[in-house]
Structures are given as structure tokens and as C-alpha cells.
């Protein structure tokens, strides 16, 4: 039996990788993938806690979070497509009309 600490550590590491990715990458699609990584890291945390507590609430929340992530992906890719049509690029450093 692997202890819960390891699962939590793994999901914390995944969350941090996603977080750093959002902050340093320049491609909108890669940033979006990093956000998805963060959400999935949280799902892992929820499942570990759910199993640790012997309580299903956490697993139910995971289903909701998957559905939300899917809805977000639909909208997100559509927005990135709109950006690509306007700018012919998904580089977020070129999306800079609005500032201050």
C-alpha cells in the first residue's frame, strides 16, 4: 500500500509544472494545456483524499471537474481559433493591443 503522501506529492508536482508552464510559455495552446494539467493534478488530489477518507464526495467532484474542463476546452479552443484568424499566430506576446 502506497501512502497518501506520495499521491499528494505527485499531484503537487504536476500542479507546479502546470503553473510554471502557464507563466513561462508563449503559445496560447501550450498555456491552455498547462491549465488542463493543473486541473488534472487537482483531480488526482481529490481522488487520493477520497480514497483516504473512504468518502465518495471527492470522486463525484472529479466528475464535475472533468465536465467543466471539457466545456472549458470547447470555449477555449474556439477563442484561440478566433485569435488565430485575427493575428495569424497564437503567440500571446503578439496579443497586446490592450494595456494599462
Amino acid at each position: 500500500m502506497i501512502e497518501i503522501d506520495w499521491y499528494l506529492a505527485l499531484s503537487a508536482v504536476l500542479f507546479t509544472i502546470g503553473l510554471v508552464g502557464v507563466l513561462i510559455r508563449r503559445n496560447a495552446i501550450v498555456i491552455f494545456m498547462c491549465v488542463e494539467l493543473m486541473l488534472n493534478a487537482v483531480n488526482l488530489t481529490l481522488i487520493s483524499f477520497s480514497s483516504y477518507h473512504g468518502d465518495v464526495t471527492g470522486q463525484i467532484l472529479v466528475f464535475f471537474s472533468l465536465a467543466v474542463a471539457a466545456a472549458e476546452a470547447v470555449i477555449g479552443l474556439a477563442i484561440i481559433l478566433a485569435i488565430f484568424r485575427n493575428n495569424l499566430s497564437v503567440d500571446i506576446t503578439k496579443v497586446n493591443l490592450l494595456r494599462w
Binding site: 502557464v22 496560447a28 498555456i31 491552455f32 491549465v35 472549458e72 470555449i75 477555449g76 477563442i79 484561440i80 478566433a82 485569435i83 484568424r85 485575427n86 493575428n87 500571446i92 496579443v95 497586446n96 493591443l97 490592450l98
Partner: peptide
């Protein structure tokens, strides 16, 4: 418009 949506979304 597209820019504001992208920023809000990300």
C-alpha cells in the same frame, strides 16, 4: 474583442 476573450479565458 478576440484579445479580451483570450485574456479572460486563459
Amino acid at each position: 474583442g478576440a484579445e479580451s476573450a483570450l485574456k479572460y479565458f486563459l
